[in-house]
Nucleic acid binder design. Structure first.
Length: 428
DNA sequence: TGTCCACAGGAAATACGGGGGT
DNA sequence: ACCCCCGTATTTCCTGTGGACA
């Protein structure tokens, strides 16, 4: 008797959760399939965002329709300025246009968002081409290149190789480019057009001049989005993902304004919107201007947490000991004490402690990331030392401590451990 | 004015680890 | 399977330093 209503309730809950998730996926491209992504892209590009760049791309690839060979292309712009999406969108467009005109055109998008050595990149390329399996080792670069060559020989017409984040080719970018620019065009009959993207304006600077001379590229610059464009992009996302009534007036303007001012990164802007929506949904309130501020703080906080989680163990240990002992007493912390605190923490978690020299570097690193503020201070005959201050909000400190403890697989509530901080106060 | 503290931070040596070549 | 090479992390060793204090 009781089972039936329970089932219904569960079903309702599941439905609610799923519909909510379905809509929210429009705020996160990773969760959408390719067709959906293109649909959104089309809508975005339909409202003339990145219009200038698309025009430039069109004129760059125009020679294709005159049976000519376009030169290579290099897209330059900061992260989140839409290099990849614009190019993919354009390639898709170009391909369908070519199909209509009975021109053969293929393209491959080589995504190097994580740095890879030359070997891996070639291997990936071969995989995309279906020319080889995924190798771990045991096959020479040359052999791999031949395989790619063999495969490409079968193709006719135009072929566009879109290499995303070219500067992520670790080591031997030269031989990779040499292969693409010199060797490949000689041995295959298709017309190869290379498209590179990079967020570094000068990525071509340190490639071999001999290759560079063979290397005629056109450059297209992607400026950071302005508030106007961001607003368009956000509006489209909102239409898809959120209930308009739940958004207070001015919220979109605010997100667009803040984002364009600080980074001009569309991905981050959408992330901010998404975060605001999440908080609003959790609390069952509409998205207000205040909520956007809170979302910004939360994103900031998540950034710190993510940084700690992905950081090396030693850095985590140093951070933990510093924020713990700094929050324990109000007076500023000096290198010596901090090091002692770190040593005892290491003893507790059975981590090999690094020397004070290395410790000092880690402290500087934390300073760079903004976890702490450290400045060198001379106290006359009492020596020179770094004064370490922690200026993070208390919740964040607690959160970070928790995260580090979890990283070390420690019981989170065993906080009673007391640091043996050397008492130096009698010296002053 | 010289001393001396308690480190900073540079340079070189060494350890380490993983990938690539054979 | 083995070795080698290379990039990175860490250690070791070192010199430098601002200013309180005598």
């Amino acid at each position: 008797m009781i089972v039936v209503p329970y089932c219904i309730i569960r079903l309702v809950i599941i439905v609610i959760i799923y519909t909510a998730r379905d809509r929210q996926t429009y705020l996160d491209d990773e969760q959408l399939d390719r067709a959906e992504q293109f649909k959104i892209l089309k809508e975005i590009f339909d409202v003339n965002v990145r219009d200038k760049e698309i025009k430039e791309l069109s004129s760059h690839f125009a020679p294709i329709f005159r049976d000519d060979h376009p030169i290579h292309l290099s897209l330059i712009g900061k992260t989140g300025t839409g290099k990849t999406v614009t190019m993919l969108y354009f390639l898709n467009l170009l391909q369908s246009l070519c199909r209509k005109k009975k021109l053969e055109l293929g393209y491959i998008h080589l995504d190097l968002s994580t740095p890879k050595p030359c070997f891996r990149v070639l291997n990936d390329l071969a995989c995309y081409l279906d020319a080889a399996k995924r190798y771990k080792k045991g096959i020479s670069l040359d052999e791999l290149m031949s395989k790619v060559e063999e495969k490409l020989k079968q193709y006719r017409g135009y072929f566009i190789l879109f290499i995303d984040e070219i500067d992520h080719v670790r080591r031997d970018l030269d031989s990779f480019l040499k292969f693409l620019v010199r060797r490949l065009p000689q041995s295959v009959s298709l017309r190869l057009v290379l498209v590179f993207s990079s967020n570094n304006l000068n990525w071509q600077d340190n490639i071999d001049p001999r290759i560079k001379s063979f290397f005629k590229v056109n450059e297209i610059l992607f400026d950071p989005y302005n508030a106007f464009d961001l607003k368009k992009i956000l509006s489209i996302r909102i239409k898809k993902a959120l209930n308009r009534k739940m958004i207070q007036k001015g919220v979109v303007d605010k997100i667009a304004a803040v984002s364009s001012r600080t980074h001009g990164d569309a991905r981050k802007a959408v992330e901010l919107l998404s975060k605001s929506a999440q908080i609003a949904e959790k609390e069952g309130i509409p998205i207000t201007l205040d909520l956007v501020d809170r979302a910004m703080e939360e994103i900031e906080r998540d950034k710190y947490v993510a940084m700690v989680k992905s950081g090396p163990k030693q850095l985590q240990a140093v951070l933990y000991s510093i924020i713990s002992s700094a929050s324990k007493n109000t007076k500023p912390l000096y290198t010596g004490e901090a090091y002692e605190a770190y040593r005892s923490f290491c003893a507790r978690i059975k981590l090999r402690a690094v020397t004070q020299r290395a410790f000092s570097d880690l402290v500087s690193e934390l300073d760079m990331y903004g976890f702490i503020q450290a400045r060198v201070l001379s106290q006359g005959r009492y020596g020179r030392t770094k004064q370490i201050m922690v200026n993070l909000p208390k919740e964040l400190i607690d959160k970070l401590r928790q995260v580090v403890l979890m990283e070390f697989d420690l019981n989170v509530d065993s906080k009673k451990f007391d640091y043996q901080v050397i008492n130096t106060s009698d010296k002053y």
